[in-house]
Design a binder for these strands. Structure first.
Length: 500
RNA sequence: GCCGCUAUCGUCUAGGGGUUAGGACGGAUGGUUCUCAGCCAUCAAACCGGGGUUCGAAUCCCCGUAGCGGUACCA
């Protein structure tokens, strides 16, 4: 293979390379999903590469289980990564705990160039220093006291058995942070302190590994949440000390809860767990559409975006600067929209697992019947899980009559109950005599009865609905009658009458 | 405490020196209908405050205020 590098050739470094770097300390949460989406969209839009890196330097909290949950969540969302994770690639390994030798080499370099030093302070001492600094209203908590330790002092600490951490020496010149979303600003070095970059157990820390890997993996744009904004100058300082190339940064606003606080696994549990949305019957396109609009907008009219449109239209320049509140109502609206886009057949496929989990069906042999049920339910699903309350009575007659519905439609008074009983008895007779149980025949017969006897349609229908389903809401009653079939219907009406 | 970021209807947002400040979710009301959902129609609902700059400020600048984020040998 003949490779003659031509200096005038445009190089691969122009290719966008972005990464999502979760730490596997729990499930993927909704904010993480949005970070992943923005990165992925940015990569797709620019024909770039999307990398999944696992930032698991916190060995104590990282788990394999969590890592796999993150994989499945990302896969469910359809945010496929080109490199990293379980997939490998040319810049691997992509799991930080496997990259320790790489970091060690950089740390050695930092130590040898005098850009880093050992710190022998104990956690207790540090605690004290912090408390004092705070009391003195200092900007920095750590004062850099270990920068110039005599070898005597070091020997003393070593003799005590102290294991040092490594700290980076922060520069004394301003650091320029240029952010694609927030704009650029100069950070006063006086606000920066010598960060710990290697723990006393030898494991490097986030601020070190992150920027090293971004450089090593040729990341061009770091798109992450604003909770990392304060880390950025520290990472830039480390990169400078190491002579590494600094990527472009884009800090995207936080996803907030309804009281305006950052959404977290700890405080919001299932509400933020992407995998829970899958389990509850949300569609990935709805979740994606929803989080895309958190902090990003295209114009003043479009709310619904297909994934392809998102790829085409996504742009960092249209990302806002302020946090966005997570509004489940809007997600629900989007979800029902996307559910309604699905064909009856696809909707049936999606809903079958929910019926099965509920124990309502164990085989799917009556596929046509199931599809007819789904069709009758129509646009009444917000999530697939809603199929249960909407259709339970099709599969079992072991349901209660809803007290509120009973009171309203069957009657609170003795008199009204008698009337209801009479109506149901008449309806029973009509249905017994009806030649066929199709929608049209039943409808004609019932309307004939109500209209000729001057009975309100609503009264008769609701009385019957409760008798057949136990509830006061749901699909067209004629659909229900037809789908339930003659035997079931003729069984349920007498039972209701007896209950009165 | 310190450092930083942000600020348009309840929420997501558009706009941005001169607009009746627009859309969407949610809410309310009416219509359609056997109920619910849907659909249709209508309505309520916002430029954080104060100073500048300007003929004119929600928009630009400054100062407040508030909220949030960070402040770890977490990420």
């Amino acid at each position: 293979m003949n490779e003659t590098p031509n200096t005038s050739t445009v190089v691969v470094t122009d290719t966008v390379r972005v990464r999502m770097a979760p730490s596997p300390t729990g499930f993927l949460h909704i904010g993480g999903a949005r970070t992943a989406l923005f990165n992925w969209l940015f990569a797709k839009h620019h024909n770039g590469t999307f990398i999944l890196r696992i930032d698991d330097t916190d060995m104590a909290r990282s788990t394999d289980e969590s890592m796999h949950e993150i994989y499945t969540a990302l896969q469910w969302l359809g945010l496929a990564w080109d490199e990293g994770g379980d997939k490998g690639g040319p810049y691997g390994p992509y799991v930080q705990s496997e990259r320790k030798p790489i970091y060690d080499a950089y740390v050695t370099q930092l130590l040898e160039t005098g850009n880093a030093y050992h710190c022998y302070c104990t956690p207790e001492e540090l605690e004290e220093i912090r408390a004092q600094a705070r009391a003195d209203k200092q900007t920095r908590s750590y004062d850099g006291r270990c920068r110039e330790l005599t070898s005597e002092a070091v020997n003393g600490f070593t003799a005590e058995g102290r294991k040092p951490t490594v700290r980076i020496k922060m520069p004394d010149t301003p650091i320029l942070v240029d952010d694609l979303v927030l704009g650029s600003r100069n950070i006063d070095p006086a606000t920066l302190e010598d960060e710990v970059i290697v723990r006393s157990n030898g494991m490097p820390n986030y601020n070190l590994t992150s920027i090293i890997d971004d450089a090593e993996m040729q990341i061009t744009h770091v798109i992450r949440g604003t909770e990392h904004l304060n880390n950025t100058p520290k990472q830039i300082a480390i990169a400078h000390a190491l002579g590494l190339e600094v990527p472009q940064f884009a800090h995207i606003p936080l996803v907030l809860d309804s009281s305006g606080r950052k959404m977290s696994k700890r405080h919001h549990g299932d509400l933020v767990a992407v995998n829970r949305y899958r389990e509850q019957g949300y569609l990935p396109e709805a979740v994606l559409n929803f989080v895309a609009r958190l902090g990003w907008s295209y114009d003043d009219k479009q709310e619904i975006f297909s994934v392809d449109e998102l790829i085409e239209k996504f742009d960092l320049e249209r990302v806002g600067k302020s946090g966005s509140v997570f509004d489940i109502k809007k997600l629900e609206w989007l979800n029902s929209h996307y559910i309604n886009q699905l064909s009856i057949s696809a909707r049936t496929d999606a809903v079958i697992p929910f019926w099965q989990a509920e124990g309502l069906i164990n085989s799917i042999e009556k596929r046509d019947w199931l599809e007819n049920i789904v069709e009758a339910v129509g646009e009444r699903l917000t999530t697939f899980q809603d199929i249960i309350p909407q259709t339970r009575y099709f599969f079992t007659d072991a349901f209660e009559y809803e007290p509120k519905a009973v009171k309203k439609w069957w009657g609170g008074s003795e008199e009204k109950r008698e009337k209801t009983s009479e109506i149901l008895t008449n309806l029973l007779q009509i249905l017994e005599e009806v030649p066929s149980f199709d929608v049209e025949t039943v409808e004609t017969a019932i309307w004939k009865y109500t209209d000729e006897n001057d009975i309100k349609r609503v009264a008769a229908m609701q009385a019957l609905r409760i008798a057949l389903t136990g509830t006061s809401f749901g699909p067209s009653l004629f659909d229900i009658v037809a789908l339930l079939g003659r035997d079931e219907v003729l069984k349920r009406i007498p039972r209701a009458i007896a209950h009165l």
